[in-house]
Structure formats: structure tokens, C-alpha cells
Design a protein around this nucleic acid. Structure first.
Lengths: 324, 324
DNA sequence: TACAGTTACGGACCGCGTAAGCATA
DNA sequence: TATGCTTACGCGGTCCGTAACTGTA
């Protein structure tokens, strides 16, 4: 069994069982790839692919298992390469993040600015998406770090570290009746149409449930996917906006009144995740420290070394968590 | 980077940094091994070994990290081989167990007898030792399954499945004053010298503490490492024996009176452990089923697929656990 | 001089690329 | 006829074993 045989095998699977395109991406010839797969199957003594005449149409059960384990092998090989790359070319490399709109738009810009100043030669890739899309990228090993809120269940094989806590704020135009209320009640808010996130509103522990629990059924005039859209419509007088606390810019949003919602809505934790056993480059630790200063290298390595998630959680609960 | 380079590297480390002996065990020449290590170091761009002139004296920090990850790689490669070996040569292979005296002597014999009848061509290896020795073998990948009681903390990267519960029994000669007592108290027992396991007596939640909590300080006439020795000395009248319930053979021990101790001593769980992500052969599932019928393949695969130990524990707590 | 690792070299093997073959839509 | 995998074959690299070499106790 050779490493490149596993690489070929994985490439074929990841290219929809198409040997020709896989060979292209591997910068090699198609017959070579075919032959190596054949050799691998011969050595293992069982076919990896389901075949219809000459076409490959899927994986056998054996193929599926071998595929999973091959991924682990190739991941580790990549990490072994990284071990020394980190020492000899410490200032160069890539860092791929996946995160949600709110983080990408409001939280990460200053973090990334500081990071780029320290490591100008690190190639940064920022992928924006929903929790599910982030999880997808993560499971395919396409990213080094995931930053998100909620959806912990989706990232079951990941080490999740809490970054900071945040809460919701209520935004209204200056001339709105709520603008002068310091601590509005749910009832006062529900008297007006609401503009908020699509994802905040539905599902369990949502705003909808929160209002319902108080016997209220607010009118929702608009649900958007990001705070910029919400603020735009609040400015147009469509209703009361409910957004994440860090989405408010004191200067750019000076025309709006932001009212603290901590007494009404539960707080949330944004976490950072990466695959258990992943190799984090030196600059990755630096990036994390810029994002969440309490996540020092020692803390991260301690959490990574603890295979049990419950024990990790306990370990991390002692940390002072910043609030935004 | 080639797989055999990692194999060579690991072999050298596991043979005390000696290239010559490593080459021997690998059935190849010493210069070849040297050269491959050199190529590997060149490719990684950093030395893996600490050297004094030409001698290898230890691992660099990089070497240590590469070593750990190489082990994972080789383990996975081995598993990939096993995936098909299990299908094509399902009846052949090896099964290595590590366990304690009580299991090896009293619990496993009938299990192994039934297993051998089904799979005469599977080579069985049974290693007996203390919890620490078992953990050592397990961490070196020398065994497929560990079976033990207690010491859960030592096996942190293992999947632990509960096999059965057991409790302690009190054994005395037929003519002993306690022989006719159905439910003796701790005080009645403490009136006589005690013969029990070394490991049961010391440490936290030990018998010593249990008696002390009741304000008693029994005289311990002998601590042994196994029940056979304890029974021998109980027969000689050295005192009251306290042994695991499964260590009593109704026929061979008919000359002793065994009194249930479930009302006095806490019960224990014997568990079975293997490395998370290990490949279990078909006959291994069969063996486990012989040992603990509630651990069916479905249950084991569900537990193995759950990366979080707390969730695993929860999953397993619903199972009906046999008592011995 | 014994021991441990390095350097040097010829042979065998193997993976690659090109080119031709074959089956399916 | 286009697509996609297989077979055939020559080239080049690489891994191996033997043998000679170098440095250390």
C-alpha cells in the first residue's frame, strides 16, 4: 500500500467517481491513476468501487471504510509536513477561516488587521456561510478554523473553545416611541413590528418562543440574514430591530438608538472550533489570541490534549470570558 | 514522504534509537534505513533525531511530534488492511487481550472456550497484568481489547463499555463462627482478621475506608494479588476472605461458605476497552458478545461512532447490565 | 579492534506518460 | 462519434543490498 494510492483513491471519490477529472487535478495521467487503484484493490483483496461495466458508480462498503480511514491518514501526513513548516517557514503559510456574517462583518475586521500586521506573508482565506455550510467545509478539511455561534451539535468531532459572550440589542430610529425607554419590556417591544435575523426567529429557544412564553405574538415585518439589512429597514421605519450586540457601530450607527436587551434575551457564546488533533501553526495561535485573548497557547493545547469533550468543557469554564 | 520512511522512523524510536537493530527487525539493510531517515529529514527540512557525532541519542521536539503522528498513520494503515482481511479471511487472524487475574482466571475461561469453538483459527493472546500494565500495553497498540475493573482515568483515549456488575463475597471455612450468619455486619466481620486483595484494601473508596467510616479498624492478616491465594489462606484459618463474587466456584470451593456482601460493599463494573477508531474484526464482536451478551455489534458501533465520552456513557447507561 | 552510521554503486523494480484498444450512450 | 476506463510499452527514477569508508570507545 502506498500513500499516493490512497491519495488517488480519495481524489476519485471526491470528484464524483470520475477517474479522468481526478487524474487532472492530481496533475498526472488517467491510466496511471486507474492502475494504482487496481493495485490497491488487488492488495486489499476486495473491490473499493461499484462498477457498471467500466464506469465507477459508487463505493462498496469496504470502499467507504477505506475512504474514511484514508482521509485520516492523509490528514496526519499533512500535519507531519506542517510540523516542520511551522518551524522553518514560520511566517509563511495559509490560514482558512469559515464564519458567519456577523463575525466576518463586525468582529473579525480589527482582528484580521492586527494579524496581517504581524504576519503579512500568511495567506488568509475567509469563507462566509451558515453554520451548516461551515460544518460542511470543516468536515471536508477545507478550513483550519471555524468561528460561529450555536450549532455545537453539528461539530461533534471538533474541539470547541468559547471566544466571548454577547447578547442582543434593540435598535430603533431616533424618533421612535421606544427610543427614550431605558429598559423596555417584551410587551412594549411586541407592540411594534419586528425586524430581525432569520435564524434568531425560528427553531428552538428562538425569539418567537421567547415572546410566546410571555403570551405575546409580535408581528414580524422582515427577517434578514444579516444586521446590515436589518439596520437599513429599521432606518426606513419598518419596525424595531433586534440584532447582535457587536453589530452596532457607535459612529456609523449614530442615527439609531441602541437599547440593551440583556435583561430580555438570553446571552450567546461564540466559539472557535478545529478538528481534534489538527496541527495549529504558530501564527494560528497568534490569530486566536487576537480574537480571544484568554485563549492562550497553553489553554488551547490543554483543551486539545483532553480527548473527552465534557472534561474540556469543564476545563474551559474556569476561563474569564469577554463580553461584547 | 513515504510510508516506509515513517515505518523506519518509528522502528528506530521503538528500538532505542538504534538503526542497526531496527533494520534487522524490518528485515532490511542498515544503510537503507539510514538513507530513508535522511531523506525524510531532508524533506521535512528539520532533523528528527538528536545526534552525538554519528550516534542517535534521542528525538528532537519535531521528532517527537512526527513520531506521534506517524503512529496514528501506521495504525490507520493497519486498519485499512484489516478492513478487507476481515471480509476475505474472516475466520483467521489474531485477538490480543489484556486483563486482570480475576477475569483471566474466573470469567474468561468459559468465554474463550466458546469462542475457540466458533473460531479455531484465530490466534488468541492473553496478557495478564495490573491496570497500569494493561494501560501500557494498550497505549502501545499491543492489544486489541482491554478488560478490567476500575482505573477508568488511565484509559482516557479509549472507548470503555460496561460488561457486567459484580460485588464482593465473604468466604469462611465451614466451622467458622461467621459461617451461619446470613447478613453479617461490618462490625461482625471486623472482629476477625481479614484476607483480601492488595488493591481492594488501599487507595480511595477502599475497604479500609469503608470500615473506617463505620468506626472500625479490622486487622488485616494478609493481602494477596489474587483470589486463589486468598482462598488458600482462608482454608488455613488465617481469617475471613473478601473476594470478587465471580471468584467463587460452587464445586471447587464447596468446602468454604460464601456469604453475599452486596449489602456491605459497593458494587463494581468490569468494562471492556479499545482504542477509539480501532478496527474490530468480525470475530472480535463475537468474542465481546460471548463475554457480555448485551454488547451487540450495533451497540458497540453506536458507542464507537460517538466521539464524546459523556454522550457514550449516557448511551450505554440504558443497557441492561448483567450481574455476576 | 569492535561498533555504529555514512557513502558509493550496480541491479531490480515500479510508477509515469504516451499510444492504442474497447465498451457504452 | 464522444466519453471513460483498460491494456501495452519504453523511459527514468528510486529503493535495495553489498561493499568499502569514517569516526568513536
Amino acid at each position: 500500500m502506498k500513500l499516493h494510492q490512497l491519495r488517488y483513491f480519495v481524489a476519485i471519490v471526491q470528484n464524483g467517481m470520475n477517474v479522468t477529472t481526478a487524474a487532472h487535478k492530481l496533475h498526472t495521467s488517467q491510466p496511471g491513476v486507474s492502475k494504482q487503484i487496481r493495485l490497491l484493490e488487488d492488495e486489499l483483496g476486495a473491490p473499493l468501487f461499484l462498477r457498471e461495466s467500466r464506469e465507477l458508480t459508487g463505493l462498496t462498503e469496504v470502499g467507504q471504510q477505506v475512504f474514511n480511514r484514508s482521509l485520516t491518514v492523509l490528514r496526519e501526513i499533512q500535519s507531519i509536513r506542517g510540523v516542520t513548516a511551522d518551524l522553518t517557514r514560520a511566517q509563511r503559510g495559509t490560514l482558512s477561516l469559515a464564519t458567519t456574517h456577523t463575525q466576518a462583518r463586525y468582529v473579525l475586521p480589527p482582528v484580521i488587521q492586527r494579524f496581517r500586521a504581524s504576519y503579512p506573508d500568511v495567506e488568509l482565506h475567509l469563507h462566509q456561510g451558515t453554520s451548516e455550510q461551515i460544518a460542511e467545509l470543516a468536515s471536508l478539511d477545507r478550513i483550519d478554523l471555524a468561528i460561529a455561534t450555536g450549532g455545537e451539535a453539528v461539530f461533534s468531532e471538533f474541539v470547541l473553545l468559547p471566544c466571548y459572550r454577547w447578547h442582543r440589542k434593540i435598535i430603533v430610529p431616533r424618533d421612535h416611541p421606544l427610543a427614550s425607554v431605558q429598559r423596555p419590556t417584551l410587551k412594549q417591544i411586541a407592540a411594534h413590528p419586528i425586524v430581525t435575523y432569520v435564524f434568531s426567529f425560528n427553531g428552538p429557544s428562538s425569539l418567537q418562543e421567547l415572546f410566546a412564553a410571555a403570551g405575546l405574538e409580535p408581528k414580524v415585518s422582515l427577517t434578514a440574514r444579516d444586521a446590515d439589512v436589518i439596520k437599513t429597514y429599521v432606518r426606513l421605519g419598518l419596525g424595531v430591530g433586534i440584532v447582535a450586540s457587536m453589530a452596532i457601530d457607535p459612529i456609523a450607527d449614530a442615527d439609531l438608538v441602541a437599547i440593551d436587551g440583556a435583561h430580555l434575551f438570553p446571552s450567546h457564546t461564540t466559539w472557535l472550533g478545529f478538528r481534534q488533533g489538527a496541527l495549529l501553526r504558530g501564527y494560528t495561535y497568534k490569530f486566536i489570541a487576537e480574537l480571544a485573548p484568554h485563549l492562550t497557547r497553553d489553554v488551547i493545547e490543554a483543551a486539545m490534549g483532553e480527548p473527552d469533550r465534557a472534561a474540556r468543557t469543564e476545563l474551559l469554564q474556569a476561563l474569564p470570558l469577554p463580553a461584547l
